[in-house]
């Protein structure tokens, strides 16, 4: 399977799903008269999406270059990316309960570690320092409110 085809297939599915949802949109009150409803554009888009996706699928792509999907996706650092995704999701989960300060320090530290840096004496100070700088600039200089989370004493602005 070529890259184009995989992409086209995904887009085709998306367009069909989108169209199906669009057809289920409720009618707007008081808009019966006009022909254009909130569902009009979505349905049109869905049709465009399906047509173009099919075209991309069947037409031969630009020749030359590695078109095989397997080849493109193989041999890359998927594990590292996986960890980074987990880290980012974790940040989203942690930022409110743990507070900005704690979560950011952990995020940066974790990120450095995932990226291959092992020296604790580099990871710890740098993540804390960056967090402090941002915390300071945001809460003091720009009076933006940041969740203090676990570190209650950071509450006052």
């Amino acid at each position: 399977m070529t890259k184009n085809r995989v992409g086209a297939l995904v887009m085709l599915t998306l367009s069909i799903a989108y169209g199906a949802m669009a057809l289920n949109l409720p009618q707007a009150p008081g808009m019966e008269a006009s022909g254009v409803t909130p569902a009009s554009l979505p349905i049109a888009l869905s049709v465009f999406g399906i047509v173009i996706a099919v075209l991309v699928f069947i037409l031969p792509g630009r020749s030359g270059g590695d078109d095989s999907v397997i080849a493109t996706f193989k041999g890359l650092r998927w594990r590292r990316i996986g960890y980074l995704f987990l880290l980012m999701t974790g940040y989203g989960l942690a930022i409110k309960p743990f507070g900005f300060f704690m979560s950011t320090t952990l995020f940066l530290g974790g990120g450095f570690r995932i990226m291959g840096e092992r020296r604790l004496k580099m990871i710890l100070p740098i993540s804390i320092a960056v967090t402090v700088v941002f915390w300071f600039a945001l809460t003091r200089l720009l009076s933006v409110y940041l969740e203090p989370g676990v570190l209650r004493f950071l509450e006052s602005n």
């Binding site: 804390i128 004493f153 509450e155 006052s156």
Partner: peptide, 18 residues
């Protein structure tokens, strides 16, 4: 480095609640 860090924390603690 650590000292500066603790110092800044100390300042934050100074502005407490209750």
């Amino acid at each position: 480095m650590l000292a500066a860090f603790l110092l800044s924390f100390g300042i934050f603690v100074g502005q407490t609640h209750a």
